[in-house]
């Protein structure tokens, strides 16, 4: 048999946080007083009903009070809140004062159960700029591309490769502007096109 329900529950705040900001609405919806007409343990509850109950009911017009006389049963009060949560308190051998005080306690509670709070703050609007989604930082042209796309998939090196560096140097010096034959040096037997000696400081 599982006793896991006895382990301390945890949760996030779900109370009606804006309750007192405008109008205050008492969160107690109805309160049931279950007692026995004859047993000794319900004496305090019976006394309370005879004396203070009507005052309590008049003071809280938004709360419905139910009385449930049940023979040979324990005495307890069950409070139901606007969010649907139910709370029970056993009233065996309570005095009239104790019943009154515990009733006040039930009335003043919000419907949120007493659990360990994982976060002591709550907001309905955690994000101003919009929550991250997988497409936040992705470029919008991806919506219209067909895959596989080479540019998107390619490795982007941080440094230019040796080939690229050579091409850059060639461009600076002016190799690429002249035709291929002019760039040959005198290792060939072809003596017609002997270019002048290379001067790297020449800029075009």
């Amino acid at each position: 048999m599982s006793h896991r329900h006895l382990f301390l529950q945890s949760g996030f705040i779900k109370t009606n946080l804006q309750n007192g900001v405008g109008r205050f609405v008492n969160q107690l919806q109805r309160i049931n007083l279950i007692f026995c007409k004859s047993s000794g343990s319900s004496k305090g509850v019976r006394e309370f009903i005879e004396t203070d109950l009507v005052d309590f009911a008049r003071a809280n017009p938004g709360t419905v009070v139910y009385l449930k006389p049940r023979r040979h049963r324990g005495t307890y009060m069950c409070a139901e809140y606007l969010n649907g949560h139910k709370d029970y308190i056993t009233c065996n051998n309570f005095t009239r004062d104790e019943v009154r005080k515990w009733l006040e306690y039930m009335k003043n509670k919000s419907g949120f159960p007493i659990i360990r709070l994982r976060k002591h703050w709550h907001t309905d609007h955690p994000s101003i700029q919009g929550i991250w989604n997988p497409f936040t930082h992705k470029p919008s042209y991806l919506n219209v591309t067909t895959f596989p796309e080479k540019e998107r998939s390619e490795y982007q090196p941080l440094m230019p490769s040796a080939t690229e560096q050579l091409l850059q140097i060639a461009e600076q010096v002016g190799f690429l502007d002249n035709s291929n034959t002019n760039n040959t040096t005198t290792t060939t037997r072809n003596t017609e096109n002997i270019p002048p000696p290379l001067n790297m400081s020449d800029e075009k």
């Binding site: 895959f147 998107r152 390619e154 490795y155």
Partner: peptide, 15 residues
């Protein structure tokens, strides 16, 4: 599967 694809994973080595 082709219809589902939305992005590329970048390669780790130059081809």
């Amino acid at each position: 599967l082709m219809e589902n694809i939305s992005d590329h994973m970048k390669q780790l080595r130059p081809v």
